[in-house]
Design a binder for these strands. Structure first.
Lengths: 271, 271
DNA sequence: ATCGAAAGTTCCATTATTCGGAACATAATT
DNA sequence: AATTATGTTCCGAATAATGGAACTTTCGAT
């Protein structure tokens, strides 16, 4: 297996027009339904997609036929369980995740706080795993979750491992949404944070994405620099002070390094 | 939201020929790759799918373009993270799962063993959630997992809630794979087990799917009988004796009933 | 290193599928 | 009951997928 989970594919997702091919249009629909807060009626979808009614109807039918969407008894559409099954199989067999897992657990035990593993995809971080302790709120949902890289610890750590050209290419067209009052506000703030991160080897997220939530994160990169990822220790600000984060930083960096080493060994020295 | 997670759509999955339409063929490919043990080379896929090379190549390219598949640095294909993201969103927002969650936790705390929530899809059970205690092995992977209904507690419990005609329609063409020496061997064994389950209101799985693993399960059905699901308490045979399972049965049934009640209330008396 | 074979990629005329407007059906609302 | 909003089906036109063959690259053995 390979460590590569893809560094490409970071197309702008929000609302790219001109979907390419049949599949593109169908996947857009999936996205649309998945992004909604709940089941959608035919008309809801119709107004959000710019398809003619007949076309949309057939597209939805096909998606339902394949189990990618489901129709509830009120005729509303929701994401089908088939996707969950597909995703869970690939998750379970993901080698990178498997290699990282014991390290995440160790880190969780030592710090007592929640530990995340995420990979960088374009300008987003997708969380691959999460290990939480007793006292934390259950947030299963984090696995698979995509968040902007610029306001998360794992994301900024991963970004810091890019060379300047790549970094610039990815973050120059970003929209810097102010999630909290501490969220980085523009590219210059991000760049200066990244240079600090590079200097010290790890990143902080001080309530930048979610109020009251802080973390320390360290980058993980594959040998060929093709895949970027990161791990973090996260907790509530009232419990997790900056001093604590500083104290944990070396542990996080060490864990990240161990994961890289394990990955190298597992894959053999080839290439 | 609706409780309906679909009772239709139980197409025979294994290797249905004659894929309908463009999407059908592409989803088959996704399945093929997801089912594999690891990343697949182009040729591996070529030999398993019966597509000409040019066609297959283009299909794979499209899937990669949409992020449903990814290519590792060795050119091998694996399931893309996009599926994980899509699936996790729908999971997080699944109302049935959300309603059941507190009940699962309560059941876990009382019994100390692992609790599962699964829905019946055709002749398979898909696990929607899992709550485990301290001492159990971490098996995240269970969520999203699909298993045959006839050899799992949740599955048999759900089957027992079908009327005879529906039950027969689903299980008559099954292949009864003997996972363990205790696995039900044919339709007659299943039918007699189901009638016992109906009589007592809950199901056992005594090492029928996995050696050394037992459980008690109770059925959950929506008002309209359209959706079938179940919950179970599962543990290793050396710790979880038949007496214990019997003792837990009323708790499991009560939890299942509570979930049904909550669901009814949440959805309002409409329809 | 060199050759041969296997693997992977591109091309394009043909074929099958999707598109989308409009007519048709059904459910909700006044 | 009439009216509107919503959902479904149809079919000629437009578009995308097909698949055979030619082409390029990678791999394995000598």
């Amino acid at each position: 297996m390979s460590m590569d989970l893809g560094s490409e594919g970071g197309k702008n997702k929000g609302h790219r027009d001109r979907e390419t091919g049949t599949l593109g249009k169908l996947v857009s629909l999936l996205d649309l339904v998945a992004l909604a807060d709940g089941p959608m009626r035919f008309t809801d979808i119709l107004s959000l997609s710019d398809q003619p009614r007949g076309t949309l109807h057939r597209q939805l039918s096909h998606l339902v036929e394949e189990g990618l969407l489901e129709v509830d008894r009120d005729g509303r559409y929701l994401i089908g369980l088939r996707l969950l099954t597909l995703a869970s199989r690939s998750w379970a067999r993901n080698e990178f995740r498997a290699v990282a897992e014991p390290h995440l657990h160790r880190l969780q035990e030592v710090t007592g706080e929640t530990v995340h593993l995420g990979v960088l995809r374009g300008t987003e971080v997708i969380y691959l795993d999460k290990v939480e302790g007793r006292q934390s709120v259950r947030m299963y949902s984090q696995v698979g979750n995509a968040s902007p890289a610029y306001c998360t610890g794992v994301g900024k750590a991963a970004l810091s491992a890019l060379d300047d050209a790549e970094l610039d290419a990815r973050i120059s067209r970003l929209e810097y949404h102010p999630y909290t009052e501490h969220t980085l506000r523009d590219i210059s703030e991000l760049l200066s944070d990244v240079s600090e991160i590079r200097a010290r080897g790890y990143a902080f997220d001080l309530e930048e994405h979610e109020s009251g939530i802080c973390c320390v994160a360290a980058p993980i990169r594959s040998d060929d620099g093709h895949m970027l990822a990161g791990i973090s220790v996260t907790g509530p600000a009232y419990r997790v002070t900056l001093e604590k984060l500083r104290a944990w930083a070396p542990l996080v960096v060490a864990a990240a390094d161990s994961i890289m080493t394990d990955m190298r060994n597992r894959m053999g020295p080839k290439r």
